[in-house]
Nucleic acid binder design. Sequence first.
DNA 1: AATGAATGAGGTTTCATTCAT
DNA 2: TATGAATGAAACCTCATTCAT
Lengths: 214, 214, 214, 214
Amino acid sequence: MAPGSSIGGAEDPAAQVSENEPEPVPQRLLTAATRLFAERGFETTSVQEIVDAAGVTKGAMYHYFGSKDDLLYEIYARVLRVQTARMERAVDSAESVQQRLRAVAVDVVVTTVTHLDDTVIFFRSMHLLHPDKQAEVRAQRRHYHERVRQLIEEGQSAGVFRTDRSAELVVDFFFGAVHHLGSWYRRDGPMSGQQVGEQFADLLLDALRPEPAG
Amino acid sequence: MAPGSSIGGAEDPAAQVSENEPEPVPQRLLTAATRLFAERGFETTSVQEIVDAAGVTKGAMYHYFGSKDDLLYEIYARVLRVQTARMERAVDSAESVQQRLRAVAVDVVVTTVTHLDDTVIFFRSMHLLHPDKQAEVRAQRRHYHERVRQLIEEGQSAGVFRTDRSAELVVDFFFGAVHHLGSWYRRDGPMSGQQVGEQFADLLLDALRPEPAG
Amino acid sequence: MAPGSSIGGAEDPAAQVSENEPEPVPQRLLTAATRLFAERGFETTSVQEIVDAAGVTKGAMYHYFGSKDDLLYEIYARVLRVQTARMERAVDSAESVQQRLRAVAVDVVVTTVTHLDDTVIFFRSMHLLHPDKQAEVRAQRRHYHERVRQLIEEGQSAGVFRTDRSAELVVDFFFGAVHHLGSWYRRDGPMSGQQVGEQFADLLLDALRPEPAG
Amino acid sequence: MAPGSSIGGAEDPAAQVSENEPEPVPQRLLTAATRLFAERGFETTSVQEIVDAAGVTKGAMYHYFGSKDDLLYEIYARVLRVQTARMERAVDSAESVQQRLRAVAVDVVVTTVTHLDDTVIFFRSMHLLHPDKQAEVRAQRRHYHERVRQLIEEGQSAGVFRTDRSAELVVDFFFGAVHHLGSWYRRDGPMSGQQVGEQFADLLLDALRPEPAG
DNA sequence: AATGAATGAGGTTTCATTCAT
DNA sequence: TATGAATGAAACCTCATTCAT
């Protein structure tokens, strides 16, 4: 994720750092690592390449991060924090269920596309993480899924979503599609993240639209 | 993928091998490699571990496969051959467009679930393949997607699918969901592959069902 | 070696430090280093572990000690000072040769047992010291041995020790046994240092007792 | 231990290897490692130095030994095997208790002096061994000590050794002296191992000689 | 068809030490 | 007197691959 690429702006205080002073070392390392992991893969990227790209030495990296693994974990944790916060804001808003689910759907696509490198790395390399950290990450992600499933169930109870669709399965279906954006979406392609988000939201709501009478 | 686990049977000559004679070495190697790559990842699995699991020596492996990379490629090629053949049979059948699309959708889910390890490895490790082989694999997969997109467009032209959905995007959406099965589907869980396939097909057809009049 | 654990009391000014004020940083460092070196070995203990155990930072350590090596040297120097001073007092006393040798023998065992960590470190790690410092330490120790050998020779000249035993060899023999106390003696075991000292002294004097007539 | 330095000759089949064919790689590695560990210490000797000295590559070393640690362990195991075998032969001979104890005492000194490097390494670096292997080594050594203690107790029961000396303590005392040979004995010095052994045996038997009457 | 010893490059990590503050 | 970020060299070890047999 390039510096300043965060969407909200408000979430990331670093975005306001003066151009004069250099970015702090840990951030430089995360930025470099993210790009390289996405380009070449985690296992194929050496620590030496990361520190070279960040313009520091290996010692400096190990001063801030316990291991190469830690770098990977931090990349995950960062994107999860952002996505969870945004999702919760949307879910807890005062809108109708349909509007809230649509907002969540659009937003997760936009966020994913904005942090496409992180997402690609996430699903490609999570299995390389230390089991303990892997468990933490999985728990966070499960929490995210649960929250959206509850929203769908709320709509089903309220009668605005059809009830013969498993909320669980719909969530897995939809997020599967979202998590795979990295394998085909191109930022320099014809569609903006927002556009893809709208269309994905349409498809999700199609699946929950009450059955045509008769 | 366990020996003899292929669905069709006809595709896989090994399925007819007598129980008495041991499985040939190349197959033993592919089986072992598939399991280990899915469990631990490609980069994290050493050639030594693979040959140990297959009960042969390194020399034997290099007799049959040019490199560790080749093993990965063969795993891909094998699953792609199976999936493409099955998809083409379904697409070219004499059924209605809807029935053909549904058959394809159910089948790709069933096949994916049957070869879940291969699929997991595929999306996790394709970037580690030699660029040339990677290109081959991508071309094959693109061919698969194209074929399904054409089927959808055929339905749109015929007026049985709504035309305000991008066939391209729907394909990416649907296969995204399918390719992510590996991250949540459990063979020992509550749903069979067939059941998931039916539901996924429902969700896909929901997205293409002509808009309710009004 | 715990603070205040020195036997004589008079040798160690730190023993008189008021309980209220915290122990000075250099002492805290030596104490921590001694324990860790004895537990884990010199090379296996990092400077970071030492300063953590002492509750200070690396900068503080390098303020007081020139290097990690220096810490080791100080541990040696400290125990050598104590042992040499005590030995000389005993050797120069007004007692008989036998009584003086016995006193020295008992005392070196008691001192060794009291400073068991230092002794263990000494013989395990002296070779890791900078050659110059190693030479200093060896010279000090040789001086100690010489002094005891002279005492034995004095007894041989005086006819109270048998003369067909090499004083040199007896010294090496006896101190070898003493220096190996660390590999079996346990402070929480059945024998006090004093008891072991008495028995070791008996064994030493056995070896020098004039031959039975006949 | 230099090739061909084994005492018995009969124990070591490698001693009969023709001069024409080169010594096997594992042996070359052990020989080089022993010399370097004794000279510079285990932690201070790099694997690179060892393989350079042995004229092989690192890969070759790791083909035969699991770790640098393993090399250390093998050095221990080798000397322990030799010493235990020789001790048991002497203890189980048909001689008198005194003669058997004397033989053991002389032999352990001769063996120690012959394998002086191994012994030095042993007591200096055992604490660096993996705890499991350390336990194995300790058990072996304890077995050795026990056997000698039993021999002394046999002599005490038979009335040929004085009973007011603790057999346990005498063993610790004597072997302490033996294990410290490395810190003063020089092979190019005035005394042969045999000579030192005889004198050490005298000192040991002095300590067990029945008390002079009266 | 198969072995397994050997290679050699490259990987991650550790660590004593320095220095601006 | 003390901090702690940063260095850079060197450590141990892994591993895909080759090749004589």
